[in-house]
Design a binder for these strands. Structure first.
Lengths: 225, 225
DNA sequence: GTCCAGAGAATTATGCAGATTTTTCTCCAT
DNA sequence: ATGGAGAAAAATCTGCATAATTCTCTGGAC
């Protein structure tokens, strides 16, 4: 194999699976995560689950209650607003820096990521998973060049949480807009325009997502959770 | 009861202790963290240690190597530079927002935090711990009002890592500058000046810390780690 | 009848002591 | 030096013991 083995630990497997399931909304917001129950489902011991939950609690993807277990975080309109606002702050900063550090390979990676995104339709149930991945990769590609692994990681954390809001809201009838032209315009601005213009497009892109879900809250569809 | 007990778990105790010890530089950068050994020192089972290390790895305070255990992250000049740069980006954003949301209680908390900081001398070994805490609290107070728990948390993470660089460097002869007047000027700018001026002071404050430690790297004092 | 307090049962989280697997070290032959 | 068998060390995992919380039910006060 050309591949460095980097064999994964059982606990890490559970961590990855749980992480994905929470982000995908397979566990409802607010739901209690019983260790024994999860251990049973995945067929592993309780310590592996405990360790996975501990890791997830450090990224705020699960809440930890000392002596009382773990739960999926609830969702709330105020939290959603602050999440999106913070994301705009950090991603525009990252985008500015990335554009200031412009390189050919960075630009090429963006073009490629957009092309790959164009292959999938977000309104087709079979392709939605692929679309989500490609979408995420496109946005990551825009920032990749910002020069700070720290900032990239923070943006990633926020993106994961935002994805959870989006995917949870699908279950309540939120329709995903296609938005290919939006991404195309964003790319053009990033490659050929000013940083200010590109950042504006990025912000309004996220604001649309914000408002789509804001409506669901205001209609009371995401109440309980 | 008016008080929710919130009793802490053994694993959390270990987590807190380890976290402090790593930040204080009691473990050398790059040092391997053997589970059995730590479990022995703290007198707990290996699972509690494993869980604590897992949590710490999620905040990048320890590195995880699948199947091969954990280690304290190494230090390096490039990492230090990027850490400080990122910190400047995030903290200036947070400070701008905090100043835009100005409230009386926020201003009062800053005044109080500076007063408390003035009680300690950073060059007295007995008081250094107190000074570090007060210093941290002062900087936290400046940003507290920024309106985003996410941004505050990210700033906190960066501050913890920066503190590790500072405290590790003490072991190699870095002298802590007192800098009370620097903090006083910063406070005045935050309370009475423009955001731009306050952010400039904040950045130059961090740049001085950066350069103090940069010198140690250039002199080869922090080589190995 | 409704509400509350509290004892005790049931459930769940937490912790521990090895068993098992993987990696790392040692030493010898090439 | 290089490769590799085997020993030693370390990490990982399991199953169960212990401790804490949560639930259930009873009895009484109003």
């Amino acid at each position: 194999m050309a591949k460095v083995s980097e064999k994964t630990t059982l606990s890490t497997t559970v961590y990855q699976k749980l992480r994905g399931d929470i982000i995908k909304g397979e566990f409802r917001p607010g739901e209690k995560l019983r260790i024994e129950s999860i251990a049973g489902i995945y067929g592993v011991g309780s310590n592996a689950v405990r360790e996975a939950l501990s890791r997830l609690s450090a990224e705020r993807l699960v809440e930890r209650y000392e002596q009382r277990g773990f739960a999926v975080p609830a969702i709330a309109l105020d939290d959603w607003r602050i999440l999106v606002r913070t994301r705009c702050w950090l991603e525009t900063k990252a985008l500015e820096e990335a554009m200031a550090n412009r390189t050919e390979s960075w630009e090429e990676a963006i073009v490629l990521a957009l092309h790959r995104l164009s292959r999938f339709r977000s309104d087709d149930a079979d392709e939605r998973g692929n679309w989500e991945d490609a979408h995420r990769n496109f946005h990551r590609a825009l920032l990749a060049n910002c020069g700070s692994p720290w900032l990239l990681e923070f943006c990633d954390v926020l993106a994961d949480h935002a994805t959870r809001y989006v995917l949870v809201s699908h279950a309540y009838g939120n329709k995903k807009r296609q938005g290919f032209s939006e991404h195309e315009a964003l790319m053009k601005a990033v490659l050929h325009g000013t940083a200010e213009h590109a950042c504006d497009l990025l912000k309004s892109h996220y604001m649309k997502t914000f408002e789509n879900i804001e409506v669901l809250f205001k209609d009371g569809l995401l109440e309980h959770s």
